[in-house]
Structures are given as C-alpha cells and as structure tokens.
C-alpha cells in the first residue's frame, strides 16, 4: 500500500533547499567576478543553486516513490535524544560542562530509557566524572566550568 513520504525526509529536503536559497541570496551581496577570476560570491552562488535544485529532485523523488508503511520509523525517541543533546550543548556555557552533561545523561537514562532513578544518577555521575577527568584533568581541555566550578 502506498502511503505519504516520511515527514522527516520531506522536512530535511525543505531544510536543504532553504540553505541553498540562503546561500544564493547571500552570494548575490558579494563580489561575483573580476577580470578573468571568480570572486568570493561565485562558488557559493553555484553551490546554492545546485543544493536547491538537488533538494527539489529529492522532494520529487519522495513523492513519486511508493513509500510503504515499513519505511516509516517512530521519531519520538530520537527527537527526545536530540532535544536533550541540544539543550546540553546550549547549556554548557551557562551551567558548566559537568552539570550539563550529567543532567543530559540522567534524563536519557531515567526518562528516555526508563531505567531506575538511583542507578541512572550513579551511572551519569560516574560517566561525567570520567569525562571531566579525561578531558579537563588529563588532556587539559578548557571546558566551561559554570557557577559551580564543574
């Protein structure tokens, strides 16, 4: 039975096309060609057109191909994982690396994977400690420390 294409695939094709359009518009504000040589706007303009055209081709393919129900996969869990990761990355500067990563992992274990809360907190704490030990203490990476110094 033919069904509609996966919304995620359509959304991604639209996003790619939008990036192409942004590049075309941005390139139009840059010098394009001078004498015998292309300038900084030339390649972004060409790439933008190619990306927009290929995204349109992908979209066309999505609606022309027969998508069976088996092709569609649940997106709830990946979206939760992606949201947790995004929040952790955004919050690293404000909360500090240790706090942001600990909260992200605790959320993934306790809420997404539905593991026991105490076990989730212990595993998250230990993993965060190892990450801080390796990157900050051993490799000397200046990770954001936040108000609590971790």
């Amino acid at each position: 039975m033919a069904v509609r294409p996966a919304p995620g695939e359509v959304g991604l094709a639209i996003l790619f096309a939008l990036v192409g359009v942004v590049w075309i518009v941005g390139a139009l504000g840059m010098p394009f060609w001078e004498g015998f040589a292309p300038q900084s706007g030339f390649l972004p303009f060409v790439y933008g057109i190619m990306l927009a055209a290929l995204s349109a081709a992908v979209m066309l393919g999505l609606f022309r191909a027969e998508n069976t129900a088996a092709d569609l996969q649940p997106v709830g869990k990946p979206l939760l994982v992606l949201a947790a990761l995004t929040l952790a990355v955004v919050g690293v500067q404000a909360a500090g690396f240790g706090i942001a990563i600990f909260l992200m992992m605790a959320f993934l274990f306790a809420v997404v994977e539905r593991l026991p809360v105490i076990r989730s907190l212990i595993v998250s704490g230990l993993t965060t400690a190892v990450l801080i030990g390796v990157f900050r203490a051993w490799l000397g990476v200046p990770l954001p420390a936040g108000p609590f110094g971790i």
């Binding site: 300038q39 900084s40 990306l51």
Partner: peptide, 28 residues
C-alpha cells in the same frame, strides 16, 4: 542518487563558511 549528491553539495556549501582564502572576504 539525488540524496547522495545533495549531501555532497551541502558539504561544499558548508565549506564556504568563513574567510575566503583567495580574497579575504568573510562569507556566511
């Protein structure tokens, strides 16, 4: 085919971010 080429071109697009090594103009 189209998805493979589109992602390849997206890589090229992302490669244009930053200062253009030839002209020194900052892009995107």
């Amino acid at each position: 085919l189209s998805k493979g080429l589109a992602t390849g071109v997206l890589g090229l697009v992302l490669g244009t971010i930053g200062i253009d090594p030839q002209t020194g103009v900052s892009r995107f």
